[in-house]
Write a protein that binds this DNA or RNA. Structure first.
Lengths: 349, 349
DNA sequence: ATTTTCTCTGCAAGCGTTTGCATCACACAT
DNA sequence: ATGTGTGATGCAAACGCTTGCAGAGAAAAT
């Protein structure tokens, strides 16, 4: 009838006090050995560390961060786990965090804007030492709160024109330019594009890169060849069908990202349009599945995991020195030519 | 010269005491309103809640769980983020956790067995209220620790023959049986298999299902058609090449999971073996990319995200009632027939 | 009218850390 | 010998919360 006490799970835990008792010093000394590493004599340090190890002591995170120390937890805010691109970045983040002895708290916004609660919690909670914002768009007032609280954070894959924040992103403009130029060099003149979300800097910049490449090569911009997308596969699919269904369909399509390129591939397949014979397709991101497609996808490689890793490094640096001025890093993209792009039909014979 | 005090970030935080002062009750009453919901008069509760809302109060997790309450954090232990299957499960977990007002702490083992530290931390830390183990193999002694500490946990996608643990998995045997039978019914007799990791119950069961289906239909087992895999794409690729390079190659290949099936598709493509004309391929999992492949992959659908969701529900139930006896849930699989499987060549004409 | 029971509230003791301050011993310069 | 600085240590006060215990009324039972 009678159940266990509410504190059941508290048992067994080795605390700093146990270590102190066992090694014959005060618990504050133990604390200093474990975190501060200052003003402790060498033999005391060694003795304490030995005991801690022997007892299997593991610091209690809540206590530590409650008392004002580090929790060694970093919060990662992502829109959702339904996107290869996000996964890749997160993978890089995770790896680096691991390497540096940090834990990862995952907050997903699920595209619901009301989910900012999570965000607030993340900082108000005080659980995290810092925040990695991989979400497409962050309301300015939230960033203001972060700044004002001097809470360390890094914007990942967001062009921060104001240079007010720590941020990292890729050369989206250049990548799109390269991709488009690649198609032009192959001989294509009718080049369609399925854009990314136009409320995101990456979406905008990629479209601009596309336009610039056309302009540089004196190809008139045809608005009908621009299909507005959202970075998700289904849009690539419908967009592909739409473009291929035009009176004079494009001979090449540049998709704003790989996922949408996959959709184009699928639409082409259904219409009996052969890639790359009848249609060239180029993507953006180079997520792992790009190379598994048939034909393997020509795309613009972003070092997504690298982006995650570097973001972590920036963040940790910022955690060390909260007063340091914001940095911005841009990662180069690279055109990866595979089998989904080729010269247009009329040039082949 | 002089830097900010170490406690800089502590400012601004609204504590339970502020709420208490503002609403004219003691802080313990506030605490009871916020977490206990017991023995508080209706109007006190309302008043406190109103004030809390107005002040934008958010409970401090560390303090709460330090003091013995719930942290509303669940730890999720995964091998890594490089696997569509894991992603899907995690996605389900994440969604359900979100819905239930929990946060997700992600621990990746990165296949390094030394990474059990993470594991120990997760519980010793006391940060998490419970643990979801999505990792392929968990040493028994760890599970013993969990049991002994009465720490809530659920094994995800692990056949727990002992029924000692809370666990959830799919009908791996049946799924493999169905897949193989599907190929047999199409007329295939030479059916190759690329197995999963044989130290995992899912790998073993799928192989058994394959064998049983063959036996039921009086097809002799040919050991040469069994290629040992590991659930990753490259192995599917090499396995595909290997099987297709045999003197009498199989007319169909059942891959232990979709990722390996993708590898087979790629190998077939390189060899000029056409799918499904010359070779039928069936996968397992039905990760989102399966439908993006060309040809679209016939596979055994596991409700991976559902598995994650249900796992969360089991865990939360167990957190509520730590003394409850372990449950086990099995989720049905479903054969999804798409274009990568067809009757063998010789039957077609 | 008195006792018992019950609902509600407050007090205070922790939870396991970090860290400012005080203390102490020792060496060094005076 | 006395003073001064310095490295090493300990004490105790937070950090923000939960919860056992006790007390205060009010309602119910005697």
């Amino acid at each position: 009838m009678d159940h266990s006490s509410p504190h059941t799970r508290k048992k067994n835990a080795v605390t700093i006090i146990d270590v102190a008792r066992e090694s014959g010093v005060s618990y504050s000394t133990v604390s200093r050995v474990l975190s501060g590493f200052e003003y402790v004599s060498d033999d005391t340090r060694e003795r304490v560390l030995a005991v801690a190890k022997r007892l299997g002591y593991v610091a209690n995170l809540q206590a530590r961060s409650l008392a004002g120390g580090r929790s060694n937890v970093v919060g990662v805010l992502v829109p959702g786990l339904d996107n290869g691109y996000i996964i890749e970045v997160t993978r890089g983040i995770d790896e680096e965090l691991n390497r540096q002895g940090y834990s990862l708290m995952l907050y997903t916004t699920h595209q619901q804007h009301g989910k900012e609660t999570q965000f607030v919690s993340a900082i108000a909670n005080g659980l995290c030492d810092g925040l990695l914002l991989v979400v497409p768009v962050v309301p300015d007032d939230y960033l203001d709160v972060l700044q004002q609280r001097k809470f360390p954070y890094v914007l990942v894959d967001q062009a921060d024109s104001t240079r007010r924040h720590n941020s990292i992103c890729s050369t989206n403009w250049q990548g799109a330019y390269d991709a488009t130029q690649h198609l032009i060099n192959l001989g294509h003149r009718q080049i369609g594009i399925i854009t990314g979300r136009m409320d995101l800097s990456s979406g905008i910049e990629r479209l601009e890169g596309y336009k610039s490449a056309l302009a540089t090569h004196d190809i008139a911009l045809d608005e009908r060849l621009i299909y507005p997308g959202d970075f998700f596969q289904p849009t690539g699919y419908t967009g592909g069908h739409h473009l291929l269904g035009l009176p004079t369909p494009p001979t090449a399509i540049f998709a704003g990202n790989d996922l949408m390129a996959f959709g184009v591939l699928q639409a082409a397949g259904e219409r009996g349009v052969r890639v790359p014979d009848d249609l060239s397709v180029v993507g953006f991101d180079d997520i792992p599945y790009s190379v598994m497609m048939h034909p393997r996808l020509t795309t613009v490689r972003q070092l997504l995991d690298e982006m995650g890793r570097v973001a972590v490094q920036m963040l940790l640096k910022h955690i060390e020195q909260p007063e340091s001025t914001p940095h911005h890093i841009t990662l180069d993209t690279q055109l990866i030519v595979r089998e989904s792009s080729a010269p247009p039909r009329h040039l082949k014979k």
